[in-house]
Design a protein around this nucleic acid. Structure first.
Lengths: 232, 232
DNA sequence: CATCTGTCTATACATTTGTATATTATTGTC
DNA sequence: GACAATAATATACAAATGTATAGACAGATG
């Protein structure tokens, strides 16, 4: 936004990103005082209900992390790369959460209810990360949007196999499971996004709405699968 | 973002916004060479798939409109106010579109299909305005978000009365019509938002997906209304 | 005509941004 | 300890932003 040809400017002495998650056994040269993860955490502290990732500036993040602006380039090519790292982390976090929900669900209670409630609990607790996944998929660079879209499709895939598995277990049918998974995912995410602006007291209410919505979709797909026709 | 106390700084000689849409019969003083609408149009020219409203700068819009930066203050207090004017326009545009779809639908064809197809057609044709409504509800100021949310609830309300009316006409029942309307609205909007990044050739495909999704929800609510119970 | 009133422009300033260049600091290896 | 390699900083600069101040312009009214 500043320089006209900003997209072509690379960092001065860029190298490998300091052994991201690998142990970095041989440190030749000065020891890194800050890591990629620290920068991601600093960025995370800055985002909020009125602060989107795409509005963060490089200098702002560096300031929050307590390093000189130029040191940022040691770890990321630009803010866009940081944003994608943020999405990765958010996606990983979300998928483990839902994995938990899935395990918890097998212990007798309703799958839908337990999954939705886990989702909403995490929304309250871990706001920042989910913020990014839920709300910022539509703005930002193409790479950023692609990363969000990929996380969503991971989610959809897992949900789809779950739906098919559950249908078999309950001896019911599912019409177009892929589409059902997509509908549920998008709906839950959209509802979750708006829920973030609401006070926490209303989260339970939103969760109930979500549950009814999901059940309507599931009943719909089962009914269509049995009767084989759809209404106009 | 610039000044620390920027939110308190008002425009130098601010007044009434030059008679927004009213005719401005009595022009005392110099004739206005530019209108609010011109600025809104200029802003609209600048937004795109990778350019959100909240990322536009005051100077940028003024440049596009061909006026001096300071002249902007004659019409809007700040960019936030412009953004809300944009939403108003987008919302009005969308509601007239759907009104058309509703009329068209009564002429025999499927209500769902005709509404969804009208929606998607407009998505292709009038991208910019719908962009704002579909994608930017989650970022930006509180006022901005509230404006988007209001447009969504207008939409929901109209859909809800339609659902009830149609159910009566077809002699079927609807379980929780308000929730059904909300689910359909959010789902269509979320799907529409992702569709905007896709090439136009795939829009028809997305429309078909939307139609199936909506029908699943409708069949679901009808089935639940009849049987009176929901699955786990 | 002069005057008043509202619209628009010109200039200016402090601030922030991204990043280029050069320098310092700290580590492992010989 | 000298050396090389790497991390981090300091300084600097051009661009851009929001906006304060002051003046120029144009039309209505006296």
């Amino acid at each position: 936004m500043m320089r006209i040809s900003s997209s072509t400017g690379l960092s001065p002495r860029m190298k490998a990103p300091s052994g991201a998650s690998t142990g970095t056994v041989t440190t030749l040269g000065r020891r890194a005082v800050i890591s990629r993860e620290d920068l991601v955490a600093a960025a995370l502290k800055l985002v909020g209900p009125n602060r989107s990732v795409s509005s963060l500036s490089l200098r702002e993040v560096a300031r929050e992390a307590g390093i000189a602006p130029n040191s940022f380039y040691r770890h990321f090519r630009d803010m866009d790369e940081l944003a994608i790292a943020l999405i990765d982390q958010a996606g990983r976090s979300l998928r483990t959460i839902i994995g938990e929900a899935r395990h918890r669900a097998t212990e007798g209670r309703s799958v839908v209810r337990s999954s939705v409630e886990t989702f909403m609990e995490q929304l309250s607790a871990d706001e920042k990360l989910l913020h990014i996944l839920l709300r910022e998929g539509n703005v930002g660079s193409d790479a950023f949007k692609r990363a969000v879209e990929q996380e969503l499709s991971f989610f959809e895939d897992e949900l789809r196999v779950d739906l098919v598995r559950l249908a078999k277990a309950h001896n019911t049918a599912v019409y177009e499971p892929a589409l059902v998974a997509k509908a549920i995912t998008r709906l839950i995410f959209a509802m979750g996004a708006t829920a973030m602006d609401l006070p926490h007291e209303r989260h339970a209410e939103i969760a109930e709405q979500m549950i009814v919505m999901v059940r309507m979709i599931i009943v719909g797909t089962q009914t269509i699968a049995v009767h084989g026709s759809m209404p106009d």
